[in-house]
């Protein structure tokens, strides 16, 4: 088991390095010259521009730059932002809590709503809950988050004046962004949970259990749910990652602090070090979630646990 985790970690590391290299390549191929956006090209002499390039290492060949970049990162040096010239790491770390809080709140909403609607809707197909589940499922995956965010502001801030439309101070400001973001995740999770519940309900072993006279409740919540959870957990893991990414838009709509805002700004300013830093952060969270998902399989499914132990 431990070994499996270790090897998972090793391959995760590879994936993180790969994603950083990927972003590096994208920016390497990018047309604009970052130096030109840093200085006034009309009033600065070509030598100064050349010097800056030298200073930033933009003149060196691709592989050398890439290696230096990874080298620096190993020593914990993520470089400095091209825009504020402040170190990237503290800049991002400072914003991480706000973004994680939003992601966590949205995920909580998504999971609770998703499972709470998904399970009963499969058990009692055609009922009221099933209807609600289908609506949440379809609208959740069909509505653009920025639109639902705007609608929420329109209703709860502009019209009813119940909730603040902006900012990141206090719990009240968290409600609408988390709802807007969580709704999308809830949509996917409801569909998933419902679908796999239905599938498992049709498996022969359920019929066997029923035939054995197990109470229906026990059948559904112990046996069926457990079996249906595996694909659901995978999807939940992916959804959390997507919600993390979704903060880019939601933080903008609600003027919240966070990594997403930093990223949106940095991308438009072609601020490579900051973009790299944020990608690194997201990749770590992503990989971390995947790891948790893997581990939870073992918790849910004894077969996997046993197999893992055997290795």
């Amino acid at each position: 088991m431990l070994q499996a985790i270790a090897s998972r970690l090793a391959s995760s590391l590879l994936v993180i390095v790969g994603s950083l290299a990927l972003v590096f390549c994208i920016f390497y191929l990018l047309p604009g010259d970052p130096v030109l956006s840093m200085v006034d090209p009309t009033s600065v002499s070509p030598e100064v521009i050349e010097n800056l390039r030298e200073q930033l290492g933009l003149n060196r060949p691709f592989h050398e730059r890439l290696l230096t970049y990874f080298g620096d990162m190993l020593t914990g040096d993520f470089g400095r932002s091209l825009v504020g010239s402040e170190p990237v790491l503290p800049k991002i770390l400072h914003q991480v809590p706000a973004t994680l809080l939003l992601t966590a709140a949205s995920s909580l909403i998504a999971i609770v709503v998703g499972v709470a609607l998904g399970v009963p809707s499969a058990v009692r197909k055609g009922g009221l809950i099933d209807f609600a589940a289908r609506i949440v499922g379809l609208f959740g995956i069909s509505m653009p988050t920025f639109w639902s965010g705007i609608l929420l502001i329109l209703i709860f801030s502009v019209q009813l004046k119940w909730l603040p439309a902006m900012g990141s101070d206090g719990w009240a400001t968290l409600v609408m962004p988390a709802l807007a973001l969580g709704f999308v995740g809830a949509g996917s999770i409801v569909r998933m949970v419902r679908g796999s519940m239905l599938e498992v309900l049709g498996e022969p072993f359920v019929t066997t259990l029923r035939a054995k006279g197990l109470r229906e409740r026990l059948v559904q919540y112990k046996h069926v749910l457990r079996n249906a959870l595996i694909p659901a957990v995978t999807l939940i893991g992916m959804q959390i990652g997507d919600m993390l990414a979704g903060t880019v838009i939601i933080e903008t709509v609600f003027s919240r602090q966070g990594v997403g805002r930093i990223l949106a700004d940095a991308i438009m300013a072609k601020d490579l070090p900051v973009v790299q830093g944020v990608v690194f952060f997201t990749a770590i969270v992503y990989v971390g979630i995947n790891l948790l998902v893997d581990l939870s399989y073992a918790a849910i499914d004894p077969r996997i646990r046993r197999r893992g132990a055997g290795q």
Binding site: R8, A10, S11, I141, A232, T234, I304
Partner: peptide, 30 residues
């Protein structure tokens, strides 16, 4: 070591794929 890695990630991939496949599942009609 690497074989183990491949196996685990292979499993993950399979499961994930199954998940992906089914995510917007309309299996109810079945």
């Amino acid at each position: 070591h690497s074989a183990a890695a491949a196996k685990t990630s292979g499993r993950l991939r399979r499961i994930r794929q199954a998940g992906l496949d089914k995510a917007p599942c309309g299996a109810q009609h079945r």
